[in-house]
Design a protein around this nucleic acid. Structure first.
Length: 754
DNA sequence: TATAATTCTCTTTTT
DNA sequence: GAGAATTATA
């Protein structure tokens, strides 16, 4: 029942779907057979009757297994029919796997279950009933960038200075308010400071504009669904009675809105089955509220089950993880154990700088692959921030180590992809002015900022949608003849494409038609640059994605949504983990946040320096415990090998600073650790490394005192002279090349010339 | 008025 | 070292 995962275990995705279990004896009773695959604690959870249950599932303790078996149990015992089950997962990929697993256990009827993420679920409900809130069903889902753009537009309209109030932070503030279920008016009443009053103004206008654009941001998807259920009892009843059993994975990362939603859905029957681990709560910055899980038993008068036996990692890895998380105060009592054996010690490597760190990792990976026979899919490298992947990628390329990066600059955030999608969006949601603004002059068709501004503001004053106004551009005051003509042509383009976007057409074909008829492809081809070629390739990939979507849709049929709407929804609710491939021979690079829910045979965590991990800001903001939970998540992903590394010196944006080993490293008991260190600095490593200039040793902690007129040498800009010294030890230096730059004297790689 | 060039800022984590 | 905002040019 409890041997270590088999060594040939290939899937790097999600927890122990293939984890241990006694060989399934062909018991006659399907329910007994289901339960026979579980340990006593797991079995207790699965066999729970009606009413709420909290499953406190430590990392690797089989929580997905419990969820899958619970669903199968509900079906097999007749406690629920498939369409009465709602299961919430963290990613679409996890949802697919869960559905597949249940199907294997109970048959194809399981397809009728709702297994999806919070956001997909809400979106699906909203498409059905958005009209009750005054939205149309083709509403657009804005990603973060689109939302910030909208905030910025509102700020411009209100004459708010974007320097004093960065749109990003205003958006964050609005988002925070929404996640506490405060609408603009309530928010205004509760606030006092000038900043907050300004935010309240922007918030009010933002809501108005979003509604006029028939658009929702990520928060809206949740909030509007709550609104829907609170305002319309018939709808709430329909869903609350329809879903007789609701199950939630990763419960520790839910926020107040999600909490409220679950309350609305399960308030009457109380059949809420949640699985989570407070030690893995890492989304506080996104308003996830760890109280949700800490107080679950009290709030819902729930029973609870603890899963502490780990089927993933060696005892050494667990001991290290337990030791680190023990430094947190806010936790429920829970300690992981395994009978998988001690295993290898945790490696802690000290390297000279991030380049050496990357080389060390590349070397170690090759060693693991060649000497110990690991498949590359079983190896992952985690880092705190996306920016850290760059140096690593450069090095892996040089070492010929194939890799995939998960998250980071995402495919769907590329300009050409967003443009293509904006065209499609406009076809299904003509009110969407953010989409319109994106494509109205791309490719260039002679409608510049000024003309666009005139169109938008006139549309605003007259109170019609800009796209409508495009039908008669001569009514817009101040437009030149050329602009009027261009607008007319653009309007015709959209009209003719709209005709094609019929209810049942192929999305891929529509996309291709859009790209060619708009002249977008042509413009790119005319550029004849490498970048343009890359963009064309990306667009081709998008057409491929659409083709796949079409094919899938053909297979599955059903769905009340028009294909185009469904396609757009799918890609806007894509998660980073959905892009993971476990078929290719690639090692995986990702942030620690993206690592949640995954497991690998060998895990490297890089950049373990105070300030990097834990992130400097978390120390300031008092969220160190969350960083520690993040460390815990990272550590517990490893099945057999775990290595953590730190660099003595690291360059971040031209500023080279010396690194202090992360406090988390110090929390791992010495007897679990094997240290690796390179005594020598990085120079002389060959490989034609880019870091190689024999630079003047950058000053470390203490400030470099500079005065106007001092001659200095900069590691990359060369010789220069100080022309000004500003507060905060910022110096202005004019360099020999002619350029003048402002630098932080404390961090920049500069030295007084002798 | 549109576009190209240049300067400046800002860097956590993400549905 | 990228993206946005500003400035210069056609």
């Amino acid at each position: 029942m409890s041997e270590a995962p088999p060594a040939d275990h290939q899937s790097s995705f999600e927890e122990e779907f293939d984890a241990p279990g006694a060989p399934v004896s062909a018991g006659s009773d399907p329910v007994e057979r289901l339960l026979g695959e579980l340990n006593p604690a797991q079995r207790g959870a699965v066999e729970h009757g009606e009413g709420p249950l909290l499953v406190l599932a430590g990392a690797g303790s089989g929580k997905t297994r419990v969820l899958v078996h619970r669903i199968a149990y509900l079906l097999a015992t007749g406690m629920a029919r498939p369409n009465e089950i709602l299961a919430i997962t963290f990613t679409n990929k996890a949802a697919d796997e869960m559905r597949g697993r249940v199907e294997q256990l109970t048959g194809a009827a399981a397809r009728q279950m709702w297994v999806m993420t919070f956001h997909s679920c809400c979106s699906r409900i909203l498409r059905q009933h958005a009209d009750r809130l005054g939205y149309k069903r083709g509403f657009t889902i804005y990603d973060e960038a689109d939302s910030v753009r909208m905030v910025k537009r509102c700020m411009e309209e209100l004459d708010v200075d974007p320097k004093r109030f960065p749109p990003r932070s205003v958006k964050a503030q609005i988002s925070g308010a929404k996640n506490r279920l405060r609408d603009a008016d309530t928010y205004r009443e509760e606030q006092g400071s000038f900043f907050e009053e300004t935010v309240a103004d922007v918030y009010t206008l933002y809501e108005k504009r979003m509604h006029a654009n028939n658009a929702m941001d990520f928060d809206d998807l949740l909030v509007r669904t709550v609104n829907l259920f609170e305002l319309f009892e018939d709808l709430r009843d329909r869903y609350a009675h329809g879903f007789r059993h609701v199950l939630v994975d990763e419960y520790q990362d839910t926020n107040r809105v999600q909490y409220r939603l679950l309350q609305l859905l399960t308030g009457e029957h109380g059949n809420l089955f949640v699985v989570g681990d407070e030690s893995q709560s890492i989304y506080g910055f996104r308003a996830a509220d760890i109280r949700n899980i800490l107080d679950f038993e009290r709030d819902f008068e729930a029973a609870s089950v603890k899963l502490e036996q780990n089927y993933r990692s060696t005892q050494t890895i667990l001991d290290a993880s337990n030791a680190v998380i023990a430094n947190n105060r806010d936790r429920l009592d829970k300690e992981l154990w395994t009978d998988a054996g001690t295993g290898e010690p945790v490696t802690i490597a000290e390297l000279a700088d991030e380049h050496e760190e990357a080389r060390w990792i590349a070397g170690e990976i090759e060693r693991l692959v060649e000497e110990e026979g690991l498949a590359r899919t079983e190896v992952a490298v985690f880092y705190r921030t996306n920016a850290q992947s760059r140096v690593l990628e450069d090095t892996l390329v040089r070492f010929d180590v194939p890799y995939q990066v998960i998250g980071g600059t995402k495919f769907y955030e590329r300009a050409e992809i967003k443009d293509a999608i904006a065209y499609l969006t406009l076809l299904t949601n003509p009110e969407d002015t953010v989409a319109l603004a994106r494509v109205i002059n791309s490719p260039r068709r002679g409608i510049g900022k000024t003309s666009e501004g005139r169109l938008m503001s006139h549309a605003n004053t007259v109170g019609v949608s800009p796209l409508e106004l495009l039908a008669e551009p001569e009514r817009v005051p101040g437009l030149g003849a050329a602009a009027i003509k261009a607008m007319g042509r653009f309007r015709e383009l959209i009209a003719s494409l709209s005709e094609r976007a019929t209810d049942r057409g192929s999305v891929a074909e529509l996309l291709e038609a859009t790209l060619s008829e708009s002249g977008y492809l042509e413009a790119l081809e005319a550029e004849r640059t490498i970048e343009a070629e890359g963009r064309i390739e990306n667009l081709q990939e998008l057409v491929g994605v659409a083709g796949e979507f079409d094919a899938n849709r053909e297979l599955e049929g059903e769905s009340e949504l028009a294909p185009l709407d469904e396609f757009l929804e799918q890609i806007s609710l894509f998660t980073a983990q959905d892009e993971i491939s476990d078929s290719d021979e690639l090692i995986t690079l990702m942030t620690l946040h993206n690592a949640k829910g995954l497991e690998f045979r060998a895990v490297f965590i890089i950049g373990c320096e105070d300030g990097v991990f834990p992130h400097a800001r978390s120390v300031d903001e008092g969220t160190l415990e969350e960083e520690r939970r993040l460390a815990y998540v990272g550590l517990t992903r490893a099945r057999q090998r775990l290595a953590m590394s730190f660099a003595r010196r690291r360059t971040i944006f031209g500023a080279s600073g010396s690194g202090v080993p992360s406090r988390f490293l110090g929390e791992i008991p010495d007897h679990l650790v094997e240290r690796h260190s390179t005594a020598m600095p990085t120079t002389g490593w060959g490989l034609g490394s880019s870091s190689g200039f024999a630079a003047p040793e950058p000053p470390t902690a203490e400030a470099l005192e500079l005065a106007v007129g001092d001659d200095v040498v900069h590691a990359s800009f060369g010789e220069g002279i100080v022309t000004a010294v500003e507060p905060g030890n910022v110096v202005v230096i004019r360099f020999g090349g002619g350029g003048e730059r402002k630098l932080m004297a404390d961090y920049a790689p500069i030295q007084k010339a002798s």
